[in-house]
């Protein structure tokens, strides 16, 4: 069966600007670098990656709001370039911005307006929206102006708008950003149940990794516009181990030492690392698939460099660590340094 979302060799390059008397020139930037992605019907695909990695750009290209530079995108077999209207009619989108409704209209008026653009009548809207409104606790707010809504209520209304359309495909950009833990959990349950009930195909980008862990059947990691598949969230522990090493040295010193690792001896394997300063100590996370082989040599290197190692433990990588490592790699790559 053909995938519902089928992305092949997708490239999105943003044009730079010329230098003017008031602003310096900006170079072209490659936001999506030959992205391939195939999502079958009914699957929730999670995208993780640092800010600026290209997650939102990918969602916007698929939703037709951005034009691709090259490559192919098909949604339910409709080609994005030649059947744009058909693609749009298959999609529901929840953006990560609260600004997507009319502030001077009530919740119901806003829903009536946006669903009316899809030809939905009032009766159908009421029938589809009422259970969602009740479930998300918006019943008493729906006759109030949108401008009086809290951030959580605004996000919930955005979800109701997306779900009542009952589109076969949903694009969710950071669905729980700026929500408190309780509301986040409510939204996650809603997504899981509604999408399963309708067999909706979902592409979900997330900074809150719990979203991906709880919802996604498959996960992809975006970094500098490139998408690499990660094993499913529940399988992460089988592929990667992380050594958590606490050091008494300042972060800058630890980072400076780590930069000499690969150059110190030609036989040393490259390692993925990420450093954080916590309570005047430094937490170094090192990811490896062969901890037994690499870790002793690595610890020897640290001690030999004069660093004060306090403790070491080895554990399975979780999504947050995967995310941090990817972000660190992207940062290092952008600055031209070896990760």
């Amino acid at each position: 069966m053909d995938p519902v979302i089928d992305v092949r060799n997708l490239v999105k390059r943003f044009r730079g600007t010329r230098r003017t008397a008031f602003a310096p020139a900006t170079p072209d930037s490659l936001a999506l670098d030959h992205v391939d992605l195939a999502i079958p019907e009914g699957q929730i695909y999670g995208l993780i990656g640092a800010n600026g990695a290209g997650k939102t750009t990918l969602l916007k290209v698929i939703s037709t709001l951005l034009l691709p530079t090259s490559g192919e995108v098909r949604v339910l077999g409709h080609d994005l370039r030649t059947e744009e209207a058909a693609v749009r009619s298959c999609l529901g989108l929840v953006t990560n911005s609260e600004r997507s409704f009319y502030y001077r209209l009530t919740g119901w008026q806003n829903l009536r307006y946006f669903t009316g653009l899809y030809g939905m009548d009032r009766t159908t809207l009421e029938r589809r929206a009422r259970p969602l409104v009740d479930r998300l606790g918006l019943s008493r707010a729906m006759d109030r102006d949108y401008r009086t809504y809290s951030t959580g209520m605004q996000r919930k209304l955005a979800f109701i708008r997306a779900f009542v359309l009952e589109t076969p495909v949903l694009l969710l950009d950071e669905p729980t950003s700026s929500l408190d833990p309780l509301s986040s959990e409510e939204i996650r349950s809603l997504i899981a149940e509604e999408c399963q009930a309708r067999d909706q195909t979902v592409l979900l980008s997330a900074n809150n990794l719990l979203d991906v862990e709880r919802l996604a059947g498959r996960v992809g990691k975006m970094s500098q516009g490139r998408l690499t598949p990660v094993e499913s969230a529940s399988d992460l522990d089988e592929s990667l181990r992380v050594a958590r090493i606490w050091l008494r040295d300042p972060r800058s010193r630890v980072e400076a030492t780590l930069r000499t690792w690969a150059g110190g001896s030609p036989g040393r394997p490259p390692v993925r690392w990420e450093v954080q300063e916590r309570n005047q100590r430094t937490l170094l996370r090192v990811a490896t698939e062969e901890p037994e082989r690499m870790l002793p040599e690595f610890l020897q290197f640290l001690l030999g460099s004069g660093l004060a190692v306090e403790s070491v433990d080895l554990r399975s990588v979780d999504l947050e660590e995967e995310f941090l490592l990817a972000a660190r790699e992207a940062e290092a790559e952008a600055s031209g340094a070896s990760p």
């Binding site: 019907e41 339910l76 077999g77 409709h78 058909a86 009619s89 298959c90 669903t115 899809y118 030809g119 939905m120 009548d121 159908t124 359309l165 009952e166 589109t167 076969p168 067999d199």
Partner: peptide, 9 residues
């Protein structure tokens, strides 16, 4: 599954 099933159109 294709298009939005709204009012049959």
């Amino acid at each position: 599954m294709s298009g939005v099933p709204v009012n049959g159109s």
